[in-house]
């Protein structure tokens, strides 16, 4: 599904190399987790894959379903099926959550040459999906993320994901700022979307999210590289011993 080869990335503004050769393949139907200390390049990877400005790819490649995504505009990557659940979802004052969702869904459908969803159909689907995430009608009407609590913001990200039905979902520190109950709710939302056609890349600092979203593969990232790959037990190892041992091993 998602194939990253020898990816090197530096910041455009300053001459600072952030990713120094990342290799990673996420197969359809699998959940991969990336863990690592702060500043290891995890979030940069998610931004580069989704096409945020300010980064320069100096070497390597990334493809989604065989297509080179690095040359695409962010909206083309989205239409191709790439979704990023933001660590800090952005507020858009005055734009109703529902309007935002519908504009996004229809923009993607249009880009793919599909029929746009009618207002009635859209409403039906969105209500259904919102219910499972405990998002009420009032929250759908409020402006996008404005005045939302941390938990509401993250649930809203998952609702967008559920509506857009992407092929490849990247979750950037989705657990940050969540209490245990909110995290469970979010994890349930994600788990409901797991299916054999869809890949997940879950970026997290802590192991606790992975108690709820069980990964197939765990990668440890440090200093712009993936230094170790293993099964779910690798996450537990980090939980018990911290990153220290792994980092010194890698050197």
């Amino acid at each position: 599904m998602l194939e990253i080869k020898n990816l090197h990335v530096k910041l455009e503004e300053e001459d600072k190399q952030i990713l120094k050769g990342v290799d990673l393949t996420v197969e359809a139907g699998k959940v991969h987790a990336i863990m690592g200390p702060n500043g290891s390049g995890k979030s940069t990877l998610s931004y580069v894959l989704s096409g945020k400005d300010g980064y320069e790819v100096t070497d390597g490649a990334a493809t989604l379903g065989g297509e080179d995504i690095l040359e695409m505009e962010p909206e083309e990557r989205a239409a191709a099926g790439l979704f990023l659940a933001f660590q800090y979802p952005v507020e858009i004052p005055g734009v109703g959550n529902m309007t935002f969702l519908r504009t996004a869904v229809n923009a993607q459908r249009k880009a793919r040459g599909e029929e746009e969803l009618s207002a009635a159909d859209f409403l039906k689907v969105v209500r259904e999906k919102a219910k499972t995430l405990k998002i009420d009608a009032e929250m759908l009407k409020r402006p996008v993320n404005v005045g939302f609590s941390g938990g509401e913001k993250k649930r809203n990200e998952i609702l967008q994901m559920a509506m857009l039905e992407p092929k490849m979902c990247i979750l950037d520190e989705t657990d940050s700022g969540l209490d245990v109950d909110a995290m469970k709710l979010v994890a349930e939302g994600v788990n409901a979307l797991r299916d054999e056609g869809r890949g997940f890349l879950v970026i997290t600092h802590y192991q606790r999210l992975l108690d709820h979203i069980k990964p197939d593969v765990v990668h440890i990232m440090s200093n712009g590289r993936i230094i170790k790959t293993g099964g779910p037990e690798l996450a537990l190892e980090v939980e018990h011993n911290g990153y220290g041992d792994l980092l010194s091993e890698a050197v």
Partner: peptide, 23 residues
């Protein structure tokens, strides 16, 4: 960027943000 990651092109994104501003 948030709007574009969700599939809107740049002009749609500007229109959406500005319309929100004018609501």
């Amino acid at each position: 960027f948030y709007c574009r990651q969700r599939g809107m092109d740049e002009e749609e994104a500007v229109a959406l943000v500005v319309n929100g501003f004018c609501k």
